[in-house]
Protein backbone atom coordinates (compact mmCIF):
# COMPACT_ATOMS: atom_id res chain seq x y z
CA UNK A 1 0.00 0.00 0.00
CA UNK A 2 1.16 3.48 -0.77
CA UNK A 3 4.65 2.75 -2.13
CA UNK A 4 6.88 5.77 -2.53
CA UNK A 5 7.73 6.80 -6.06
CA UNK A 6 10.93 8.34 -7.36
CA UNK A 7 10.31 11.57 -9.24
CA UNK A 8 12.44 14.33 -10.73
CA UNK A 9 10.97 17.80 -10.94
CA UNK A 10 12.95 20.77 -12.24
CA UNK A 11 12.14 23.78 -10.10
CA UNK A 12 13.43 27.22 -11.11
CA UNK A 13 15.97 25.55 -13.38
CA UNK A 14 17.37 23.05 -10.86
CA UNK A 15 16.39 19.35 -11.02
CA UNK A 16 15.24 17.80 -7.74
CA UNK A 17 14.99 14.05 -7.27
CA UNK A 18 12.87 12.75 -4.38
CA UNK A 19 11.02 9.64 -3.31
CA UNK A 20 7.49 10.77 -2.53
CA UNK A 21 4.17 9.36 -1.42
CA UNK A 22 1.77 9.34 -4.39
CA UNK A 23 -0.71 11.44 -2.41
CA UNK A 24 1.80 14.28 -1.88
CA UNK A 25 0.46 17.41 -3.55
CA UNK A 26 2.74 19.48 -5.75
CA UNK A 27 2.44 22.47 -3.40
CA UNK A 28 3.56 20.33 -0.47
CA UNK A 29 6.47 18.99 -2.53
CA UNK A 30 7.55 22.56 -3.30
CA UNK A 31 7.11 23.87 0.25
CA UNK A 32 7.99 20.91 2.45
CA UNK A 33 10.40 18.81 0.38
CA UNK A 34 12.23 21.69 -1.29
CA UNK A 35 11.70 24.35 1.41
CA UNK A 36 10.45 26.92 -1.12
CA UNK A 37 7.75 28.50 1.03
CA UNK A 38 7.08 31.44 -1.29
CA UNK A 39 4.28 29.41 -2.87
CA UNK A 40 1.35 29.70 -0.46
CA UNK A 41 -1.47 27.36 0.47
CA UNK A 42 -4.63 29.44 0.77
CA UNK A 43 -8.01 27.77 0.38
CA UNK A 44 -6.60 24.33 -0.52
CA UNK A 45 -9.69 23.77 -2.69
CA UNK A 46 -8.59 25.20 -6.05
CA UNK A 47 -10.43 28.51 -5.61
CA UNK A 48 -7.96 31.11 -4.41
CA UNK A 49 -4.86 30.68 -6.58
CA UNK A 50 -2.32 31.53 -3.83
CA UNK A 51 -0.54 28.27 -4.80
CA UNK A 52 -0.25 29.21 -8.51
CA UNK A 53 3.02 28.12 -10.12
CA UNK A 54 4.02 27.74 -13.76
CA UNK A 55 4.16 24.12 -14.95
CA UNK A 56 5.93 23.88 -18.31
CA UNK A 57 5.26 27.65 -18.60
CA UNK A 58 1.50 27.41 -17.91
CA UNK A 59 -0.13 28.62 -14.67
CA UNK A 60 -1.70 25.85 -12.59
CA UNK A 61 -2.89 25.49 -9.00
CA UNK A 62 -0.27 23.38 -7.23
CA UNK A 63 -2.73 22.40 -4.46
CA UNK A 64 -4.75 20.51 -7.07
CA UNK A 65 -2.00 18.47 -8.67
CA UNK A 66 -0.05 15.50 -7.32
CA UNK A 67 3.72 15.82 -7.19
CA UNK A 68 3.96 12.55 -9.17
CA UNK A 69 2.01 14.21 -11.99
CA UNK A 70 4.83 16.77 -12.32
CA UNK A 71 7.52 14.08 -12.71
CA UNK A 72 9.92 15.12 -15.49
CA UNK A 73 8.32 18.55 -15.84
CA UNK A 74 9.53 22.11 -15.18
CA UNK A 75 8.06 24.24 -12.43
CA UNK A 76 8.64 27.93 -11.84
CA UNK A 77 7.82 29.51 -8.48
CA UNK A 78 7.98 33.05 -7.15
CA UNK A 79 11.53 32.39 -5.93
CA UNK A 80 12.61 32.02 -9.56
CA UNK A 81 11.48 35.50 -10.60
CA UNK A 82 14.41 37.44 -9.14
CA UNK A 83 17.54 37.30 -11.31
CA UNK A 84 21.04 38.28 -10.09
CA UNK A 85 19.66 40.11 -7.09
CA UNK A 86 17.29 42.14 -9.28
CA UNK A 87 13.55 41.88 -8.91
CA UNK A 88 11.45 40.89 -11.94
CA UNK A 89 9.66 43.81 -13.61
CA UNK A 90 6.34 42.50 -12.28
CA UNK A 91 7.69 42.39 -8.72
CA UNK A 92 9.03 45.94 -9.07
CA UNK A 93 5.68 47.12 -10.36
CA UNK A 94 3.77 45.45 -7.49
CA UNK A 95 6.06 47.26 -5.05
CA UNK A 96 5.78 50.58 -6.83
CA UNK A 97 1.97 50.50 -7.18
CA UNK A 98 1.26 49.15 -3.70
CA UNK A 99 -0.30 46.07 -5.31
CA UNK A 100 -0.07 44.06 -2.11
CA UNK A 101 -1.59 44.61 1.28
CA UNK A 102 -1.30 41.44 3.40
CA UNK A 103 0.74 39.83 0.61
CA UNK A 104 -0.77 36.37 0.94
CA UNK A 105 -2.09 36.17 -2.63
CA UNK A 106 0.97 37.93 -4.08
CA UNK A 107 3.11 34.91 -5.14
CA UNK A 108 0.20 33.47 -7.11
CA UNK A 109 -0.72 36.87 -8.57
CA UNK A 110 2.90 37.37 -9.68
CA UNK A 111 3.04 33.98 -11.42
CA UNK A 112 -0.27 34.58 -13.25
CA UNK A 113 0.94 38.06 -14.23
CA UNK A 114 4.28 36.71 -15.47
CA UNK A 115 2.54 34.16 -17.63
CA UNK A 116 0.28 36.84 -19.09
CA UNK A 117 3.21 39.09 -20.00
CA UNK A 118 5.21 36.18 -21.45
CA UNK A 119 2.38 35.35 -23.82
CA UNK A 120 0.83 38.78 -24.41
CA UNK A 121 3.24 41.72 -24.37
CA UNK A 122 0.53 44.37 -24.65
CA UNK A 123 -2.51 43.13 -22.71
CA UNK A 124 -5.70 45.16 -22.59
CA UNK A 125 -7.31 46.00 -19.25
CA UNK A 126 -9.83 43.18 -19.80
CA UNK A 127 -7.08 40.68 -20.63
CA UNK A 128 -5.28 41.62 -17.41
CA UNK A 129 -8.49 41.14 -15.41
CA UNK A 130 -9.16 37.77 -17.06
CA UNK A 131 -5.60 36.60 -16.39
CA UNK A 132 -6.13 36.90 -12.62
CA UNK A 133 -9.67 35.42 -12.58
CA UNK A 134 -8.28 32.46 -10.69
CA UNK A 135 -6.43 34.54 -8.09
CA UNK A 136 -8.35 35.82 -5.10
CA UNK A 137 -7.18 38.89 -3.14
CA UNK A 138 -9.03 38.89 0.17
CA UNK A 139 -7.81 42.45 0.80
CA UNK A 140 -9.69 43.31 -2.44
CA UNK A 141 -6.69 45.22 -3.73
CA UNK A 142 -7.46 44.45 -7.34
CA UNK A 143 -7.27 48.01 -8.70
CA UNK A 144 -3.63 48.38 -7.77
CA UNK A 145 -2.80 44.84 -8.89
CA UNK A 146 -4.26 45.59 -12.34
CA UNK A 147 -2.38 48.91 -12.47
CA UNK A 148 0.86 47.15 -11.51
CA UNK A 149 0.52 44.50 -14.21
CA UNK A 150 -0.23 47.18 -16.85
CA UNK A 151 2.77 49.17 -15.67
CA UNK A 152 5.03 46.08 -15.77
CA UNK A 153 3.92 45.47 -19.36
CA UNK A 154 4.90 49.05 -20.26
CA UNK A 155 8.24 48.70 -18.45
CA UNK A 156 9.11 45.42 -20.21
CA UNK A 157 8.26 47.03 -23.58
CA UNK A 158 10.39 50.05 -22.78
CA UNK A 159 13.40 47.95 -21.72
CA UNK A 160 13.19 45.61 -24.71
CA UNK A 161 12.86 48.70 -26.95
CA UNK A 162 16.05 50.15 -25.46
CA UNK A 163 17.88 46.85 -25.91
CA UNK A 164 16.89 46.74 -29.56
CA UNK A 165 17.98 50.38 -30.01
CA UNK A 166 21.26 49.70 -28.19
CA UNK A 167 21.95 46.69 -30.36
CA UNK A 168 21.43 48.69 -33.54
CA UNK A 169 23.82 51.68 -33.43
CA UNK A 170 23.00 54.22 -36.07
Amino acid sequence: MNDRILITVTVNGAPHEREVEPRLLLVQFIREELGLTGTHIGCDTSYCGACTVLLNDLPIKSCTMLAVQADGYEVRTVEGLEKDGKLHAVQDAFSEHHALQCGYCTPGMLMSACHLLETNARPTDLEIRKSIQGNLCRCTGYSNIIKAIASAADKIQEVSGQEVAGGNPV
Binding site: S46, L55, P59, I60, K61, T64, M65, G134
Partner: peptide, 9 residues
Protein backbone atom coordinates in the same frame (compact mmCIF):
# COMPACT_ATOMS: atom_id res chain seq x y z
CA UNK B 1 -14.84 26.88 -17.40
CA UNK B 2 -13.35 27.94 -14.06
CA UNK B 3 -10.13 29.98 -14.44
CA UNK B 4 -6.93 29.90 -16.46
CA UNK B 5 -5.11 27.61 -14.01
CA UNK B 6 -7.89 25.00 -13.94
CA UNK B 7 -8.36 25.19 -17.72
CA UNK B 8 -4.66 24.38 -18.21
CA UNK B 9 -5.03 21.02 -16.45
Amino acid sequence: IADNQVRNL
